[in-house]
Design a protein around this nucleic acid. Sequence first.
DNA 1: AACAGTGTTGTGTGC
DNA 2: CGCACACAACACTGT
Length: 632
Amino acid sequence: RPRVLYWFRTDLRLHDSPALHAALELDPECFCPVFTWDPHYVYRTRAGPNRWQFLIDSLTHLSHALTALHPSQTLLVLRGPPLALLAALLAAHRITHLAFEPDPDPRAAARDARVRALAQARGVALVNGDRPGRTLWDPAALVAANAGRPTTSLAQLRRAAAALAAAAEPPRPLARPERLPPPPPERPSPADLERADPDVAAGRAPDEGLGADVNAALRARPERSYAGGAAGPRADFAVPALEELGFAAGAATTPLRGGEGEALARLGAVAGDAAFAARFAKPATAPTALGFGPEENGTTGLSPYLHFGCLGVREFWWRVQGVVEEYEGRGKREGGGAAKATRPPESLAGQLLFREMYFAAQAALGERFGRTVGNDIVRFVPWHLPSKLAGPNGDGSGLAPADAPGPDDDADAYRVDSPQAHAWFRRWRAGTTGFPWIDALMRQLRRDGWVHHLGRHALACFLTRGGCYVDWERGARVFEELLLDHEPACNAGNWMWLSCTAFESRFFRCYSPVAFPKRWDREGRFVKRWVPELGGFPERFVYEPWNAPAEVQRKAGCAIRGDGLSPVEDDAGDGLQSYPEPMFDFAERRDVCIRAMKKAYRVGLFGNDERVLDGSWRRLFDDEAEGPTEGE
DNA sequence: AACAGTGTTGTGTGC
DNA sequence: CGCACACAACACTGT
């Protein structure tokens, strides 16, 4: 009978899991569930403590869920490079089948190819299920159905999906298993595993040419999750603790908790409110909501669960579909004004279709999807703080931006062409721009690891085409670190969208940091929640406190002063708190940016243009187009 | 070839 | 408050 090794990756759930389902269909005599604590992920994924905690919680929950299905099962967390550890396990347990969910992320492709080759070389069968687990449809098949082109509109995505299947609907979700086979009779020996990798054996951090730890600056202490060997400090294959990663205990501030149980409970709450789920209209939900769900006119908060695979995307799709059918049927039965459900793009299903569109667009372009260089769907705009280019001559011939080492303060990652724009970027990142709406969103992002989609629009537009004229790749890196739901395809896609460099082109539609939030929140509850300094400001000034007369500021207990970078003494003699002055005149910057975007559109370069790589783009821009384009 | 309509989610003014 | 419209004007699709 088969002996199955199940390698969990970004599918931290038991329901709606095609690879798991296929593995258990084999009726194996033993089933060994593992998660590899991959140094590539630990050192090369830009992630703050919130996202690590979410991962840890999701793994812990998964382990408990496995135990609930078989008392001797737990999730074995193996610390070290997956290739070596999996090779050791295949041998130790005489594994016949290696099962895992295919990962559409291009950065995982090389690793997965090596693991496939390993399995084939050992005569171990691969089990990946009969459909993708992470997306509704196979992204590569969608690309093929779209004539090999990246899907850049919802219409293209829907046409491609319709071409894949007669039904034009994704497959139904798969049931959660009711029982599991036992684990292999003996646990893997840490010594055997460690022999597979000399660094792990020596208690060193594994080195596979990893380069710098991109999170070094975020960690309070050195990273130590490999110091105890492959089985961890207690030799029990337990899930690492946040402290082992070098973060302080309690460094995670998000109220969102990871895990399949939490995901299904939240989905249940969404589906349990038929009017909310069926009449969901994204543009009508409030980026100023203080919570999730219908009471707050908020969204579902399910995105982090989709990212870690705690929630199956087909489970989400079909649960909502069921509610919609019920809702419309009930409306019809009761006669009169039939209850109308919303449709894509604004409906819940529409949100999943956008996600699908980004996955398919990424599948067509691979890693280039996440940057400008070499990316033929993204317009070239001579943004400030552009990514440096890799390659022997710094000419981009290597195609990868040399932004990998170090966090964004590392000057190696991008070129500081404008000290002014750099100061604006640092203030944007810190949430001290002096624009309360922008700062509130950024502070929510820092604490909760989550911001409403329209709030992300406001942040992204402000940093790029609607304010700072800073490269969207800078903003994308910050979101990568801070978002619990950071999905490379969706993040890059949305940054291109909002910067009007791909997917969208109406750059003259610009989000105002004063007018936009007033559509949902005239009193400024949201701003006062996240920027408590402004709690005493009257409604009239809450989004533009710099316009409040000195007397109003005094009565509000907060003075508008300081540059947002150097701390102001709160007791500057007057007993008033401080909130920074706005970093520029928004209307002025908006006009400058729109003119510069117009110029960039007229020049009409895309990321794969030779002139982008060799620097000759400079000759096509005059200095009027926001900043000098000659010389240094 | 020219044109109109549409595209997940803009703003400010005036009625 | 809700609505129409100007603002200045891009890309794609279908006719």
